[in-house]
Design a protein around this nucleic acid. Sequence first.
DNA 1: AATGAATGAGTGTTCATTCAT
DNA 2: AATGAATGAACACTCATTCAT
Lengths: 219, 219, 219, 219
Amino acid sequence: MPRPPGHGPGYEIKRQEIIDQAAQLFAKQGYAATGIAEIGQVAGLAKGALYYYIGSKENLLVEIQNRVLNPLLTAARRIAGLDEDPVLRLRLLSQTLLELILARLDHIWVYEHDYRHLRGANRTRLLRQRREFEKIVQDLLVEAMESGAFRKLNARLAMLQFLNMHNHTYQWAKPDGEWDAEFLSREYCATLISGFRSPSYDADDLEERVRSFREREGA
Amino acid sequence: MPRPPGHGPGYEIKRQEIIDQAAQLFAKQGYAATGIAEIGQVAGLAKGALYYYIGSKENLLVEIQNRVLNPLLTAARRIAGLDEDPVLRLRLLSQTLLELILARLDHIWVYEHDYRHLRGANRTRLLRQRREFEKIVQDLLVEAMESGAFRKLNARLAMLQFLNMHNHTYQWAKPDGEWDAEFLSREYCATLISGFRSPSYDADDLEERVRSFREREGA
Amino acid sequence: MPRPPGHGPGYEIKRQEIIDQAAQLFAKQGYAATGIAEIGQVAGLAKGALYYYIGSKENLLVEIQNRVLNPLLTAARRIAGLDEDPVLRLRLLSQTLLELILARLDHIWVYEHDYRHLRGANRTRLLRQRREFEKIVQDLLVEAMESGAFRKLNARLAMLQFLNMHNHTYQWAKPDGEWDAEFLSREYCATLISGFRSPSYDADDLEERVRSFREREGA
Amino acid sequence: MPRPPGHGPGYEIKRQEIIDQAAQLFAKQGYAATGIAEIGQVAGLAKGALYYYIGSKENLLVEIQNRVLNPLLTAARRIAGLDEDPVLRLRLLSQTLLELILARLDHIWVYEHDYRHLRGANRTRLLRQRREFEKIVQDLLVEAMESGAFRKLNARLAMLQFLNMHNHTYQWAKPDGEWDAEFLSREYCATLISGFRSPSYDADDLEERVRSFREREGA
DNA sequence: AATGAATGAGTGTTCATTCAT
DNA sequence: AATGAATGAACACTCATTCAT
């Protein structure tokens, strides 16, 4: 959302830096409890200059939400569209989600905590995007049910269990924690899938299939 | 926890009402974004009178946290100390936790979001209590492993999965949602236990045992 | 200044106690920086009851001023009217003034610091009384000049030197300091009189005359 | 002592103006009884802009104290270190002190009345500086005793007499009073020295020596 | 591209005082 | 004789934002 018509080449770079720094502060202290002055101090900019880059405080929040939702939705749409077993796709989506969470812990804090400070159109768009992500997950779960892999579940509740398990991770994950996204995804999915699966479905080869998928893709 | 030396009979009642109202506002808007003036308005009290009851804004936060943590820890300690199968105790603890979450959704919002605005001793005590609760859960999981019911898990990660699943519920639960605590607990535990259990462990009679336990207790 | 028509026997006693306690607080923290709540706490009274005794905060200040000025003016008038050498009377007045200062250090702090918070008639009366005291001192100095004991001085400046020397004592005196009023009076007067006296005047027997005066009076 | 990192050329000037205006208000009404709003009104600045310059109310008090103590201590150290008769140095110090008092009456009011509202390090530093000044005076008095000019006095009491006489001047001096610092210093010192001196010491030529010193210095 | 200066509403909190009981 | 409850203005201070330069 660059503001005035003409900008030098450094503008966008500096802008992104400022958003990064703001995300860190918001994550640590909360959006409402973080002052513009503080951001300016961390950015090494006087308040006037800061506003040249950010437009408004709420705008920073919008950008941070976008940095989470844009890659998340893009990846989710891509994975959901793959021509693969829905359980495999769920496993891939799980890992992508965890990668995003672990890579941008501070952004996720803000995303989870402070989206309610958005107003008007910003808020509406955000909620729509969140619902879209939820729908993608839920549709995959339904596909898995229809494929016979999962037993007959309340689809919405299954989706919520999936998201509970994943989304709450930001609350305790550390920037350099002992567990990476792949490990967590394996563990989470093992739990969830063993809970969701039909008696007849054998999930034991899932990780093998993930590996093989990655090889195909990487090639 | 009355503040000035003496108080009339209505004091504590009104005080609890105010804390209720504050919890609602904090849950909706966040602690930092909610003004004392707003609370006074909702309470129908001028700011001076408000402070007569609350002492300070942070004190309101403390009270709300206590309303969550005191019953939670009391119940958790009691359940952990029961002379029952650890898996049964986990299931009971799960339901108690969900009952608390669903009964006091706004308090939980504040508990989950705004504990970081506590300072000094208040914060220290809160973190200690949170850790105690986590330890109770983790110890139950270890007991379940030692009893042979659960396979060999990373205890901490299992505890985090348990809490992820439960604690994130506040994010989407509605005050009069379609699912009650018992149903959610059954579902969550079914998923978790099927993920955690040893191949040899048969969880099918768990709900039966829950019912029988309740009858014994209720009698 | 008792308020309602009828009062029990304990009223005035308690009232004086409260004024004492207020004087201590005002002295330590200043009138403006001391709250009514604080006084009530020290007095062991709720605010409502406190007001039953004190009428208003400013009224406390008035009472404290009176406790200084009434005995001071009474004593000063009496001493000035004695049929004695003016230098002796100055020496007696000096000691009386210092006795009052040392006996009621906290009242004097308030008297010196906070009289400017009085308004209207209270302030006018106070200033009048202060001027009366100054006039008594100045008249004694003039008498001493006219008697030939003191050389020709600017009377007002001499009076101000006298009061500078005495009145500033409260700034460093301690409740149980090493010097008593008699000693300080002797020292201050020795300095002042040696500075004010005529070359012909011999002050060496002054303390002797003080002693002899006291014996006559005491008898 | 500018607060934020960078400031324009007018900043320090305006800042000093505001401190001036605050000193006047504090002197008239007392520090505790003067509101920030009032200062802003006098300065013609909204509260936000005011804080841009002052940092905090207590900071204003610190600055005012510094404006008294810095020149006072600098001058006192210089005078104490002169290679002159200690009595002459006392006389010079007396005049310097009175010059400061008369030149900055309102600052002195605040200095004398409101230093107790300073907290923490500010207060500690202030008290240390006050003690340093007292020590300089007392050391000069001891020197004068050792030189034989003064008789054997209690050094601390002599110092307190000296300061009583001088420091209390602010209580009655007027901005355009009839007496200047030189005149008051001559009078005060005449009184004090005639009280302190040895019988053998002749103080009659002191003013002559002051004049000669000033000529030497001025040349 | 950036600054210093300013605003005015808003922050949480304390104040002296009142009054029905 | 004393209380608990209430008020509303004032307190020191911070806020996001603007704008001439």
